[in-house]
Structure formats: structure tokens, C-alpha cells
Design a protein around this nucleic acid. Structure first.
Lengths: 119, 119
DNA sequence: TGCGTCTATCCGCATATCCGTATCTGACGA
DNA sequence: TCGTCAGATACGGATATGCGGATAGACGCA
């Protein structure tokens, strides 16, 4: 059994994170939580054009986050590993904690100022 | 209590993922698993120049993934929320499963071909 | 105050990502 | 085989991200 270098593991790990580092792709994964979906369904669900949806799906597919299977003219996408959902949920919990701690009193301001300033 | 829009939550969620979507930053987080570290320690641990390390830390800090506190001339970084570690570990498990399933027989080839081809 | 150490930020360039539009492929039915 | 529909890919411009190198700021101490 061959060894995968430590650096390589971190690179691959980062690539999985990067695949999830996009609001549309997160929406796709969350949409797949409750079952498989066709590209058209996902496209409508996330409110994005079909080619864009298809490319997002390609990114997720290349990282093994979603699986594609033909169904006639359709292609159905699904989640082969629910642990991805668990990880996303954990990060969402972290986010919720952060939002709660800062107070939710100015979501508009936060919208305009993406990063939390240092102190 | 004000409402944070669904779209905004996904945007923030994606930003957390993006902050983790870099091998050096993952190394930093993992290095912090066992306690707080100064910038210099982290810089040596991940084998990156100090300014680069500092910028990576700024990214993580802005997303609330790490916390900074002055300690004399040093700045000590730590993890305020261990759930980030749990999420990272889950994704690492997913990666391990993927690697096991594909077989580890050509890590060199995989190194050169970042994406898993569609089929 | 002046100096050395530790950390943060600025600048500039190379690279990568994102998204709209157009086009291509693949499957089904007439 | 041809038309049509679902989906995937190609192309190009705008934007963002990466890094190294230089520099600026913060702190402690003499």
C-alpha cells in the first residue's frame, strides 16, 4: 500500500474545501440532502443558468462530492457520502454561533463588510 | 432579532469554506489543534515565509476561525471553536475513503492529475 | 530615545476563478 | 435519420487570489 505524502493530503483536502467554497455549490449540496436531482431541477433550485449549474456540478463531481448517473435524457445527481453534509452542518453551526455572538443587529452592514475587522 | 437572509448565510458559509480551502491554512489549523502558537512557530511549522503566514492568519482571523492575542512581542494564535477541527476531520475522512476506494496505487499520477476524471 | 525582534501590511505581477454566451454531445421519439 | 430536449463544454473578459519582496508598525529593553 503506497504512501500518499502529507503535503498531498493537505492539497487534496484543500481542494475539497475549495469545491464547497461557493454559495451556489453549497446550495446544490444542501438541495441534494433530501434526494437526487436532475441538473434542471438544481438549476431552478439555486436560481442559476443551466451552463453555470453544470459547471458547478462538474467541480463537485471532480472532487467526488456528488455522483452523476444518466436517467434517459436526464442526469441525476446525488450525494455518495453524507459526511459532507455533516461537515457543512458543523461549519454552519460555527457560523450561527459567530452571528449570535456578534448580535444580529446589522445584517445589512455585515453584508457590505464581508470580513470581521481584527478587533 | 433581525433576519439574516438565506443568501447571506450561504455566502458567509462559503467564505468560511474558502478560508479553509488552502493547504497552508489547513496546516495552520491542524497545528493549532494541540494548543496556541506564535506566528513564528506557525511559520516554521508550515514552512512558509513570515509575511505569507501572517496573511494566511489574517484570512483565518477575519472569518473567526482563529483568535489572536498579544503576548509581549509575540502574537499567539488559537482556535476559539473546536467544531472547525471536527468539520476538517470529517472532510479528511471523506478524502481517506475516496483514496481507499480508488486504490492508492498511483499517488504520483494523482499528483499530476488533480481532478478525478468524470468516470 | 534608540535598537532589535516579532508581526502586519503594501505593492506588483502571475495565475486562477467566475459567469454569460455560444456551441457541442448524447438520448429519445417520430 | 432528423428534430428536440437535457446536459456538457468552449471561449473570453472581468474580477479575485496567490505569492515574493519591501516596508511599516508594535513591543520590550538598554
Amino acid at each position: 500500500m503506497e504512501k500518499v505524502t502529507r503535503a498531498e493530503v493537505f492539497r487534496l483536502h484543500a481542494q475539497i474545501c475549495k469545491a464547497l467554497a461557493d454559495p451556489s455549490r453549497l446550495l446544490i449540496v444542501v438541495e441534494l440532502r433530501h434526494g437526487s436531482r436532475t441538473v434542471g431541477e438544481l438549476s431552478r433550485a439555486i436560481g442559476a443558468a443551466q451552463p453555470l449549474t453544470s459547471r458547478h456540478l462538474a467541480v463537485l463531481r471532480e472532487k467526488g462530492i456528488v455522483r452523476a448517473e444518466r436517467d434517459g435524457t436526464f442526469v441525476r445527481y446525488s450525494l455518495p457520502d453524507r459526511r459532507i453534509l455533516a461537515a457543512i452542518d458543523l461549519l454552519l453551526d460555527v457560523l450561527a454561533t459567530q452571528l449570535a455572538r456578534q448580535g444580529l443587529r446589522s445584517s445589512a452592514a455585515r453584508r457590505l463588510r464581508p470580513a470581521l475587522r481584527s478587533a
